[in-house]
Design a protein around this nucleic acid. Sequence first.
DNA 1: AACGGATGGAACGCGACTGTTCCGGCCATA
DNA 2: TATGGCCGGAACAGTCGCGTTCCATCCGTT
Lengths: 204, 204
Amino acid sequence: MERNRSGDRKSVSRVPSGAAVMRVTVTDALARSFFQEWARTGYSGLSLERVARSASVGKAALYRRWPDKAAMASDLLSRVGLTITDVGAQGSLEDDLKAVLFAIRRALRHRQIKCILLDLHAEMERTPALERAIRPFQHMRRARIDGLIDRAIARGEIKPSIDRETAADFIAAPLYWRMAVLGGRSDRAHVEGLARMIASALRT
Amino acid sequence: MERNRSGDRKSVSRVPSGAAVMRVTVTDALARSFFQEWARTGYSGLSLERVARSASVGKAALYRRWPDKAAMASDLLSRVGLTITDVGAQGSLEDDLKAVLFAIRRALRHRQIKCILLDLHAEMERTPALERAIRPFQHMRRARIDGLIDRAIARGEIKPSIDRETAADFIAAPLYWRMAVLGGRSDRAHVEGLARMIASALRT
DNA sequence: AACGGATGGAACGCGACTGTTCCGGCCATA
DNA sequence: TATGGCCGGAACAGTCGCGTTCCATCCGTT
């Protein structure tokens, strides 16, 4: 085998390409393929070579942007973080809970997000870089739930002495468990029942 | 390179081995190494070659027992299932809950079990064989929780109209979320608070 | 209009894992 | 006591991904 050097007869036709500036379309295609492959194969089975191939992009273009898998994951995750929108304050604890739960449900309904989250939680134990990348998300979620609890305390709906950490666990966990871990569904009635039960737990 | 066939001079010393019956010690060593490696590298990064190596066992001995990774995982998981013991009925809903929660906590305290569970939940989405292997566990857990709920209904502590599925989610999820997903701790007081809050939610 | 760095594509050397096959040696069972 | 078939070890061919390097081409910027 020989390199395809000048002087060789053109072995196969080549598609034109290139410009003096990184093209956003290439970066976006790589990001899309990265998440798609992540959901399909899991993080540890994720091959950057395949990512580039499925994005119809040269491998060199990928490695010019990110040095390795962990850096790529961290960078892409941090970008997604920026697009998260807050849910406003509703009138009561139960309505606040419903708003948060519906937001969680909206995310977990996407099979891709569900798979990546499950995989991420498993991989964090082994790849500290991922844990660092995901921390901002956890803080954001925590802050939102703290706000929710503050409002409920101000309204007198729950006691100020509540263990906020455990309260936060109660809000996120059952829906995640049902949708992500068990792979079940969650309709409107389920979310409303959940909100009622969580509210009852928090009032304890 | 040549095979090490009869007639060659002994190239290196070889440790004696072999018998006409599969040795349980070999099977056990493979099982131990399998779970150890699983926790370390995750299912998809799990190499049977490494499993055999770390068990100090020939690769052939492994492949003589199981045809591939999925079969090995299914078989070993089903064996572990047999060792699960039931927790007896306590006097009240809250005490029943505490018993179940302490059992869950005991399991999740082992880093190895925690890692494997997280990984399993992520991998089930991709490897149907694992889903099939784990189903008996889910049924077992479900049956136990159904029993707990039946007793509480009989005592009049909760309504017979309760959504048992959601109730089961409430029992398992918060502790799993805290210990496995977030990597946090759970002391005795936490479990007791959890039991109180879950009981309150179930009574809704 | 000219520049220069990005582009798709191809290949490289390396290392790892897979599933299989062979061997001589050994020992639990019948 | 005889022996069948398991044992560790080693090698195999094949596949795959890694991270790098080269090329000729192209086109957004200045």
